[in-house]
Each structure stands twice: as C-alpha cells, then as structure tokens.
C-alpha cells in the first residue's frame, strides 16, 4: 500500500481527467459529452485540493476548486440549455448531427 502522498492523488486526478477526455471524444450523446466535461473538471479539482493539502499553498487550492465547482455548475446549466435548444431544433441530441459549421 505504501505511504499516501501527493503523487497518488495526482494519479487519481489524471485518471479522472483522461476518462473525461475520452468520454468527450467518444460519446455521441450531448449529455455524455457534458458528463465528460464534469469528469475533467473533477480531475483538476482533485489536483487543486491535493496541492492545497500537500504544499504550502494553503487555502488557495481549495478556493480555486470551489470556484471551479461553481463554474462547472454554471456551465452545466448553460450547456443543458443549449442541449435542449439543439434537441428542439434537430430532434436529436447526437453531436455528430450538429455539424453545420463543417468546412
């Protein structure tokens, strides 16, 4: 098991981050993409808090994490609203269908 330190937490954050990125890259469902975003944000949050705990940065990490949570909530709200509009217009939530801006 070994000693728990900063590295372990960063590993967890990295895994969450990569899962989020892969989720965004593979899910065709808008909601799925949003979930990927949440995962990415959480991965970074883990990092922040871990730095807050294991380095002399103190509360800065936690405060930043708090802001990220708030922003994530806001982003989720707006993203869902956009998703709803998208659904209203396209009658689907497949992001591959929203390619009007392709070259």
């Amino acid at each position: 098991m070994g000693d728990i330190g900063l590295s372990q937490y960063l590993m967890v954050g990295a895994v969450l981050f990569v899962c989020g990125v892969v989720c965004m890259a593979t899910k065709r469902n808008v909601i799925g993409v949003l979930m990927g975003v949440e995962l990415v944000l959480n991965g970074s949050n883990v990092n922040f808090v871990a730095f807050s705990r294991y380095t002399p940065l103190g509360l800065d990490g936690q405060a930043t994490a708090l802001f990220v949570i708030v922003l994530a909530a806001a982003e989720a709200a707006v993203a869902l609203a956009i998703a709803l509009n998208f659904y209203n217009n396209h009658l689907t939530i497949d992001v591959d269908r929203g390619n009007e801006l392709h070259g």
Binding site: A25, V95, E100, L101, H102, G103
Partner: peptide, 18 residues
C-alpha cells in the same frame, strides 16, 4: 483543401486536442 479538416464534428475536435 484544408476545409475537410473542419468536419464540424465535436468529438473529433476533442480528440485532436488530446
């Protein structure tokens, strides 16, 4: 010739970012 890069597909972009 470059316009084909702009597929308009969100997931592809994410992949490219990664």
């Amino acid at each position: 010739s470059l316009k084909v890069v702009q597929t308009g597909r969100l997931r592809q972009y994410v992949m490219w970012i990664a």
